[in-house]
Simulated scan of single mutants.
Amino acid sequence: MRQQIDVVAIDGGGSGTRLRAIGVDGTTLAEAASGPSSLTLGVEQAWSNVASGLDALASATGADLTTARLVCGFAGGRSPERQAQFRAMGGQSCADIVIVTDGFASLLGAHGGRPGVVLAVGTGVAAYALGQDGRVSSASAWGFSIGDEGSGAWIGRRAVSLYSRHLDGRLPDASTLFDALRSRVGDEFNAIQTWLSAANATRFATLAPVVIDAAAAGDGVATRIMAAATEELELAIGAIDDGGPVSLLGGLGPVFAPRFSARLAARLTPPRGNALDGLALMARRGWREEVVPELERQDG
């Protein structure tokens, strides 16, 4: 049966994209997944993977998406230039495109549009807060090239950096982590350089589970990497924290929850929803920017 899609919520990050087709009555009609659509990895790649997801939704619903609104939360979505490029690529495929960051979408979803803090940690990382005064603030959302401290990509890059030190004698510690990295990135200079030549945030993040497993097994190097990552994440939360509830989202959220300090752990609250829920909330209220109007915020 042919269905009418009013909104497609799109959560795009460095590891993958999730899409939700929402009908005119607000019900979920279908969901789909596709490849990475972080705008920092390239707008063309982002649109290609979003388009693939939209095709899947069209097939599942039989709907004409040219009348639908796309409400997107992208990693790297703050840049006006990238937003404009994405809209130029997708403008003929839908009725409207709204773009915010995936961190803001997660913030709205986690607390239902009410005050609180969210830490979204996966391939990248971003901490967002909605204060009691309605002000939205963020920390550690600068992207992989200079930031994303504590993220999966940061953990993987840190591991390879220490591994390179080990290979040339600057870090003589024996480590099961280094043993595991040999089969993944190479065991000599040229092989590692070849691996690095194609390494971006997504590829570095594939090494995070190796570090996490090694730390769980008691490896000293991996344990120190995870401790440093935890410290960075707590620092990001602390920079914008006003004492409200704190929710963790993203694939690595469950990994870090038991690592946080007792003071922070006591404030952790299960999220009410995810980034797709936050984007659906934006669509219902007609929001187009990373701003929470005072009246709407109080209405919850």
Rank of each mutant, 00 (worst) to 15 (best):
T17A: 09
D96Y: 07
F178I: 03
G91W: 06
A60F: 06
T206Q: 12
T28Q: 13
R259E: 11
F256W: 14
T194I: 04
G26P: 12
R69C: 15
T206I: 03
S38A: 13
D213G: 12
R285D: 14
D6C: 08
N200T: 11
G103A: 11
A88L: 04
A228K: 03
I99F: 12
D241I: 15
F256Q: 12
D148T: 14
C72V: 15
L65E: 07
G253C: 15
L207V: 00
D173H: 08
I225N: 04
G73W: 04
A228P: 03
P80D: 04
R18Y: 02
E290V: 08
W154R: 09
R87T: 14
R82F: 07
R135Q: 15
G186D: 01
E296W: 13
R263H: 10
A88E: 06
G186F: 03
M89Q: 13
V246M: 08
A120W: 00
S151Q: 06
H166P: 06
M226E: 06
A126V: 15
R267A: 12
M226P: 04
V50P: 02
G156N: 04
A84V: 08
G73Q: 05
A217S: 13
A191R: 08
S79T: 09
F260V: 14
I240R: 09
E234F: 10
A198C: 06
A58Y: 03
A84L: 15
G169Y: 05
A95I: 00
D102H: 02
H111C: 14
A222Q: 01
A95C: 05
W287D: 08
A68N: 11
W287N: 10
G112H: 11
A63R: 08
G244Q: 10
L196H: 06
F104M: 07
S137P: 07
A46N: 00
S183D: 14
A239W: 13
G12C: 07
A228W: 00
G12Q: 00
G77A: 13
D219V: 00
G113R: 10
V121C: 13
I99N: 11
R20L: 15
G90K: 08
Y128P: 01
N274C: 05
G156P: 01
I240Q: 10
G156K: 02
G35N: 05
E44R: 05
A266L: 04
L107R: 05
N190I: 05
G131K: 09
G273A: 12
L252Q: 10
G243N: 12
G218H: 06
E81T: 13
L65A: 07
D179R: 06
V255D: 09
G220A: 09
L268Q: 13
A75W: 06
S164I: 00
M282E: 11
S15G: 12
V292P: 02
E290N: 09
Q85V: 02
V211D: 03
A265Q: 14
